[in-house]
Design a protein around this nucleic acid. Structure first.
Lengths: 146, 146
DNA sequence: TATTGTTATACTCTATAACTATA
DNA sequence: TATAGTTATAGAGTATAACAATA
């Protein structure tokens, strides 16, 4: 075992630092998990959003997930190439997005991975604490006034 | 005002997603804040760690902050170039790191920015909730068994 | 004019591998 | 053999700008 020599890290008492470190580990874990399905974290997120919002358009996907238009385009193109989603005409400039049958199969696996991950993550938190935590974190990024 | 059309984002009920979104906003804000001091978030973090642990060596800095050796090197080099830290011989392969007088001035400003940021972040959380939150988040990245 | 989507591009962060020097 | 530091490099993720087509 490694006995870390009791170093004083003042950052560990900061919410900002803790969120940053936790996020890195979480994203790494999710990346490995979704990687087994041939997906990036962003792609898996998009699939979940489309599953719940059939016929959503691309710009709404980006807006909901905080992904810029320019970065959303190649992700949607990739999911379309993989035949996980399909497009149908909305108007001349935008198209509705829907899961294909294959996409529905894959998103079911995505949900399974997500649920398992979330369970591991919250194993030591009560439902009440979990709800408070979600409220706190969402207020941080939704206010943006930060 | 923008009336977002009530879209169903299933990710918003996930701790993982919330941590990720909050982290992005926090890091962006910190980046802007430290940018005024001519520092990146990583550099400002390193300065704080050295301030609290004089004569720490480079590998311990990286280990404490979760930065790989290969990425720590240019950060330390940059801080040395800026005359914010200085090196003194530890043994043939490593060197002690300390703040210069200039570094001490800068780190004081860093602490001021950090404190202001943390206050804004936690304005709606009680000290008890804040402590629980820190415990929860640190358990996520420290277990690593995730 | 504003919106949607696309492409090109650049910048930051992070990751691996290979190397030198030292313990 | 393991550790400390360095360099080179590659891959994500994210940012801006410019453009075409459409509303």
């Amino acid at each position: 075992m490694n006995d870390t020599p009791a170093l004083d890290n003042p950052l560990e008492n900061l919410i900002g630092y803790q969120v940053r470190r936790a996020s890195a580990v979480i994203m790494n874990d999710m990346g490995r998990s979704f990687g087994e399905l041939g997906l990036t974290v962003a792609e898996a997120s998009i699939l979940q959003l489309i599953e719940r919002n059939p016929d959503i358009i691309q710009s709404a996907v980006g807006a909901a997930l905080g992904i810029k238009r320019a970065n959303t385009a190649p992700l949607i193109a990739d999911l379309t190439e993989k035949a996980l989603i399909e497009r149908s005409r909305a108007d001349g400039r935008s198209q509705h997005l829907r899961l294909t049958d294959k996409g529905k199969d894959v998103v079911a696996q995505v949900y399974a991975h997500v649920a398992a991950h979330e369970t591991r993550l919250c194993q030591d938190a009560s439902p009440e604490e979990r709800a408070r935590l979600i409220g706190f974190l969402s207020s941080i990024w939704k206010s943006q006034g930060l």
